[in-house]
Simulated scan of single mutants.
Amino acid sequence: MATAERNEEYYKALLEKRTEYEGVFYVGVKTTGVFCRPTCPARKPKFENCEFFDNAQQALLASYRPCQRCRPLSHPNHVSDMVRLLVEAVEEHPEKRWREADFKELSVDESTARRQFKKRFGMTFVEYARARRMGLAMKNIRSGQTVLDAQLSTGYESSSGFRDAFSRIMGAAPTLLEGSNVLKASWIDTRLGPMMAIGDEQSLYLLEFVDRRGLEREVERLRQRTKSAIIPGMTEPIRSIERELTLYFDGKLSRFTSPLMMIGSPFQKSVWEQLMAIPPGETRSYADIAHALGKPTAYRAVAQANGANQLALVIPCHRVINSNGDLGGYGGGLTRKNWLLQHEKTLTPQ
């Protein structure tokens, strides 16, 4: 892509605050001397006052200083001090029922906390705290406590209120979930934007960019197919993929080894196995995958299986392109797909 064409694309992304361009470019503003990330909330400069860079180091070397509003040298969804304070407070007393006085005691504005948690976790602070309480209740039930004991230990005086809250968060009444699966969901910051990871203590079930269209439906389908409760939390497979993603984006890892749970039909799994066999830095077409499976006319079915992948990057559906060389589609956005393909050409083989 020519530089002028690229700059026009980046400027359009800057005006629209498009999250899929996070980590792809930074913009230096000549009139202020600062550089920003694509989603900076500050007033947008004129095109002729913009200078675009591939990374923050280039902007710094060009004498730009980091913007104080979007903080381009930190993660795009850097946790605010308020969010950190409240998360720590919940962890100290997960059974606590939060009231207005509790926020005042911490010198925290309740409405600001609601907005920041909604942006960060997709739920308000009260919903987050309630989900954490329910997670504790679920742990107690699974360890042998009765539903009544779990209700009382998590601060619910009314059994009906406990069951209603439990059902809203986990999708089923507590008695129906005894002995069933619990999956935990965590937020992972990456260079290309935040991702959601869902897993249990054995495997990773889902890894997707948070801004992927239809992510909520994916999570709901996963919950229904596994008959699981999905609650905020961390598991060892999630810790593992978080470590591996850091190495991957640093250019130090080309193959993921975190344990996976691939939920799909035999045909879908066969397609995903073919995807995982594509070496980093290389691409295949949908027709190539169909031929490799011995079903040369099944390229449309291959494309559908490709789109059904719920483990982004780990099952590298971004390495599949159209037969004519076009990028094709990608749930995380074509800008990210192109960036990933270029990035993987620089990875050290393992």
Rank of each mutant, 00 (worst) to 15 (best):
D149T: 08
D149Y: 05
D149M: 12
A150E: 07
Q151I: 01
L152T: 06
S153F: 03
E157D: 11
E157I: 14
S158F: 04
S159T: 09
S160A: 04
G161T: 01
G161C: 01
G161W: 02
F162T: 11
D164R: 15
D164S: 14
D164T: 12
A165W: 04
F166E: 04
F166S: 01
F166L: 04
S167T: 15
S167R: 15
S167H: 14
I169P: 08
I169G: 02
M170G: 12
M170R: 05
A172N: 04
A173Q: 10
T175L: 05
L177H: 03
E178S: 01
E178Y: 02
N181E: 07
N181M: 14
N181L: 14
K184N: 03
K184L: 13
A185L: 12
S186A: 15
I188G: 06
I188D: 01
I188K: 00
D189L: 03
D189P: 11
R191E: 10
R191W: 03
L192P: 02
G193K: 11
P194M: 15
P194V: 13
M195P: 02
M196P: 00
A197T: 06
I198V: 15
I198K: 11
D200Q: 02
D200L: 03
E201D: 12
Q202K: 09
Q202D: 09
S203M: 04
L204F: 02
Y205T: 13
Y205A: 08
L207C: 02
L207K: 03
E208F: 03
F209P: 02
V210H: 06
R213S: 12
R213F: 10
L215H: 06
L215R: 13
R217Q: 10
E218Q: 15
V219G: 06
E220G: 01
R223Y: 02
T226P: 02
K227G: 10
S228H: 03
A229C: 08
I230A: 10
I231P: 05
I231R: 03
G233H: 07
M234L: 14
M234H: 09
M234I: 15
T235G: 04
T235L: 11
T235R: 06
P237M: 12
P237D: 09
I238G: 10
R239P: 01
S240K: 14
I241N: 01
R243N: 12
R243P: 00
T246M: 09
L247P: 00
Y248P: 05
Y248L: 08
F249Y: 10
